[in-house]
Design a protein around this nucleic acid. Structure first.
Lengths: 241, 241
DNA sequence: CAACTTAGTATTATATTTATACTATCTGTC
DNA sequence: GACAGATAGTATAAATATAATACTAAGTTG
């Protein structure tokens, strides 16, 4: 599998916020070349729902609509670094799991300029995120993705298509890889992990079978949950290798 | 699954060969922006080997080395259309199965300019290809991919990495989709199809099990092979839907 | 301490995958 | 023209994985 490991370190996060506004005004009709951007799909799980981080646009085009956060790739910046810079900008985190998904390059995908956009998916445990579902923080929302996709509200650009693809991809990979582990904290209970799987896959799983499946991937710790009105649950960590 | 269907029609193939040479000379040091190209991995199967179409470079950088064919994406051209234009240019075919793979965007991947490259994979039955393994036609070679990857000959740009990814992807998808059907002719025998699977997966399969697996995907025709010194083999087509 | 609730395990039933052994039908040769 | 050699194609058993159910365990709350 091709994926960017968690330990990718931040590189471009010292720079100030890129001036998207100024950039837009310079090329009102058609710029001299193609611009490349990274569009970010930052997922988390909270309130038993798969949540996606989105921006409420303040300017045209698509003012007032929800859009994915994005960054323009710098002329001397690696594509992967640009994506991580964007993730860091919007979440404040720099050790996040992320991987490239798909590149969208229809000539009219941006009404104002010729832009090709590479979508990236990031997975963040809710414990590390400063945002909460339904709360607006500096124009940023955490939205229930499946709700969003079921509804027919217009989204900016081709972002609905991007989200649909990422949503499918996340479920598909969850079936065959350990990608979903990035949505729980470093130490987690099996009931919690199972809930994450169920939310992503959209169906309930048998407890006994789920445990058999992940048994070889995890290592138990000495810790147990406390305070719940039922039998405590053991905490596990992802096994090395 | 996201993939471009076979029936994508050609659009940009009337234009003349893009002047790659002239383009290169214009920006000897650093161009004003990022250029975007589509890099093409055109696979076929012949002589019981997975073959890849490659170009022998005549100019710097990497003169004399093997490289993937590529096209620069036009300012008013859809990304997918650019890829198909390139496939048509080099094969003469316009109804080819192809899909986007992965985007390579390291800032130094091209020593002469800032370029981001989107890799595309195309699968062509050898019957439709004008090339034969080991033969050079207008600077184009069909090379045994697994041989190439095992050896340590230098390839142009980051093309070794691109090929490694595509090689992995093809095998991975062959396990779970019908993608490999695009490497046989419209009408095919099951022994032939099985051979294609074995070459891609790199292991032998049990005849009876292979047949059970594809049984639901194919429709038998009335035709049989003739002339072989053994029992004739029935010809099948891919079932609709 | 009984009722409730969720954690965790043991075991069976079913389906899928893996593997082997067989029969079928052509060509070429003596 | 029968039989040897070759590959096509099928039937069936063995092993493994997946799906499903039923149970026991260990906390809190009233």
């Amino acid at each position: 599998m091709r994926n960017n490991s968690t330990d990718t370190k931040k590189k471009g996060s010292t720079q100030t916020k890129t001036s998207v506004t100024a950039e837009k005004k310079k090329n009102a009709v058609a710029s001299s070349g193609i611009t490349v951007s990274a569009e970010l799909l930052i997922f988390s799980i909270d309130e038993d729902k798969l949540q996606l981080l989105m921006i409420e646009r303040e300017e045209k085009p698509y003012a007032g609509l929800l859009a994915l956060p994005s960054v323009e790739v710098g002329i001397k910046e690696n594509l992967d670094d640009a994506a991580l810079r964007g993730i860091t900008e919007v979440t404040g985190l720099d050790d996040v799991y992320y991987e490239q998904l798909y590149t969208f390059g229809d000539k009219n995908r941006d009404p104002k300029k010729r832009n090709i956009s590479v979508s990236y998916m990031a997975l963040v445990p809710i414990e590390k995120l400063a945002f909460r579902p339904g709360e607006r923080v500096a124009g940023v929302w955490l939205v229930d993705v499946d709700d969003l996709l079921e509804g027919d509200d217009e989204l900016a650009y081709d972002h609905r298509e991007m989200i649909e693809y990422a949503r499918w991809y996340l479920a598909d990979r969850t079936e065959s890889t350990t990608i979903a582990f990035h949505l729980v904290d470093d130490m987690f209970t099996l009931p919690d992990l199972q809930r994450v799987y169920e939310i992503i896959l959209g169906r309930s799983l048998y407890k006994a079978n789920f445990r058999k499946k992940v048994a070889g991937l995890i290592e138990e710790t000495e810790y147990l949950t406390t305070g719940d009105a039922h039998r405590p649950s053991r905490l596990y960590v992802l096994a090395e290798e």
